[in-house]
Design a protein around this nucleic acid. Structure first.
Lengths: 339, 339
DNA sequence: TTGTACGCGTTATCAC
DNA sequence: GTGATAACGCGTACAA
């Protein structure tokens, strides 16, 4: 058991002053070669490392980034974290992860916990409850304090800050268009309620593609699930009451589950009915048949978010200029559609 | 823009001393009702919150937990994080997540980054490279400094610390036994190289069950993959060169992919060939057919780890007594075997 | 009842 | 070339 050693310890042991030690360790020109060597040798021997907390207090910089997300089990958020971690780590930052579990209150509590000096900035994606309530005071307070915030994926226009999203509307548009090109006539969409910013945008892309085609829109072919949770019965009923030959799903879980239902009804995929989902996760890759998806490029999104945040944190001037980066979605073609 | 307010600011504004403010905010009996109300009102108005960093420096307690894991995209680790986060948050702790990406060097760097005061303790699962090298000096150094460590899942006996694992051997044993009871005769195992502690234990459980039965062991029915990465061709060759009616896989990805291969060969699941995997993730649940798995109870594991760590962090006496908690695995029966 | 002084570990400035 | 001092923000033992 050898407890952490401080400057003071070294100073006492070597019978010099604390400031001499501090300078010696930084190879300051002021200090004689002799003392420098003595101090550095001693420090190395006892494995001296400066205390991060003390430095944080002094510099008012923690080198920590707070990441607040609704859920960590979803593959998309997981890849975003990985992207953030990658970029942040390379820049010497640590990542503190907090989960809101889709709860407004938890989101608020987590942010308050971190906003009192623990972090230099936030990267976050709003909980569904927050988007539903439309209450963003906790974000406002944080930005008012001058703490930089980057929102990704689930964002709001009510807050002035940097944002990173993919073009959800375009993604859904591309997917729907693909169906149309392949001659599908009865194209359904399974999504969540509109309060989720991404669901809304995706629904619009779907509608846009249909309006541009001869097919036109049939609102009854849109199934809006109340939550992100799987409602197996809801989807089952939907399939029983509609004649469909293509389905666009707002996430991969809905899609994979829907495929199973279709198969149970004896439909062939993609001949009788084709599927496209969002999120390029393990589920899509290993589903049977494998699922065509609109990739959200989570890792890229994380990296971009981290870069935006760290740039802002490290920039001296406080520019009040914010940007919104819109990443291009891409279609990952697999066996759930023709190719 | 209203920057953070400090005790000093309040003191100056109200023309009292800093310590008076500090005491007033803690409702100290020493302070007159009058000043207390004045101070508290002012503090509330300007939304005063004590600076975490300053408190950390003073208390030598950060209320941060460092979590170092090999990978965040695997469902198992994801659920463990969730468990840790849940427990830790309830206790007022934050979770700093670092990814080693299965790399020894990254693991070392991450730990060093955090060990200089940023955290009160570590929860970690070893990278495969670390287990392969058998070099645990970075762990030794940390524990030598008196920083508590909890290892989970991928552990080592070389380090004295609390540990949390599931009984991997038992899990594999249960699964194999299940196959045997159901009359399967040619039971294979797809695993990774033995340097991963969990793979080794699982292989032993598999062997134990076979030895106890009349079937006996056929080493050629064990496929050892060099890494956690999917080697599709390796599995394909294995299937082509063996007559199998049951397969135990060390993770769900191997299992789901193997099922697909079996189906492509025209085999029926579970009649012709049955499958069991490890890890109760989304993949297992939504596979077609759904996959029977040995559940590792990741969330529980995270909670238990967090509890062990926080208990140790908060205990005054430094007991040099460590425990290893062994969680019971359970079989989650789904359609990839008879039931 | 209020205020002073000190310490947590570090760095920067200034004096010797 | 070296050291004393102040400061970051807070809490607390002790003094007034």
């Amino acid at each position: 058991m050898k407890p952490k050693i401080t400057l003071k310890d070294i100073a006492r042991e070597l019978e010099v002053s604390i400031s001499t030690v501090s300078k010696a360790l930084k190879n300051s020109e002021e200090i004689s070669r002799d003392t420098k060597e003595k101090v550095q040798a001693f420090a190395k021997l006892y494995n001296y490392k400066p205390n991060n907390i003390a430095i944080s207090l002094k510099n008012k910089r923690t080198k920590n980034i707070g990441v607040v997300i609704p859920d960590i089990v979803h593959h998309f958020f997981t890849t975003v974290i990985r992207g953030i971690e990658k970029y942040a780590n390379a820049k010497g930052y640590n990542v503190i992860v907090c989960l809101s579990e889709e709860s407004f209150d938890k989101e608020v509590i987590n942010m308050e916990m971190l906003a009192n000096g623990s972090i230099d900035g936030f990267i976050m994606s709003l909980s569904s409850e927050t988007q539903q309530k439309g209450d963003f005071n906790h974000l406002k307070e944080v930005t008012d304090q001058g703490i930089p915030v980057v929102l990704f994926d689930r964002i709001t226009n009510e807050i002035d800050c940097d944002k990173v999203i993919i073009d959800d509307e375009l993604g859904a548009y591309m997917a729907t268009k693909k169906f149309i090109e392949q001659g599908k006539k009865n194209i359904a969409m399974i999504t969540t309620d509109d309060y989720l910013s991404v669901s809304k945008a995706r629904t619009q892309g779907y509608l846009k593609a249909l309006k541009e085609s001869k097919l036109g829109v049939d609102e009854s072919k849109i199934l809006k699930m109340p939550t992100m949770e799987m409602d197996e019965q809801g989807i089952k009923d939907f399939f029983d009451s509609h004649e469909l030959d293509a389905v666009l799903c707002v996430n991969e879980i809905f899609a994979v589950y829907s495929m199973r239902l279709a198969q149970q009804k004896g439909l062939r995929i993609p001949e009788d009915i084709a599927f496209i989902g969002f999120t390029d996760g393990l589920l899509s890759k290993y589903a049977n048949p494998s699922l065509t998806v609109v990739s959200q490029h989570g890792e890229k999104m994380g990296e971009v978010s981290a870069k935006l945040l760290i740039d802002k944190v490290e920039s001296e001037e406080e520019e009040e200029t914010y940007q919104t980066k819109i990443l291009e979605p891409t279609l990952v073609i697999r066996d759930s559609i023709f190719h």
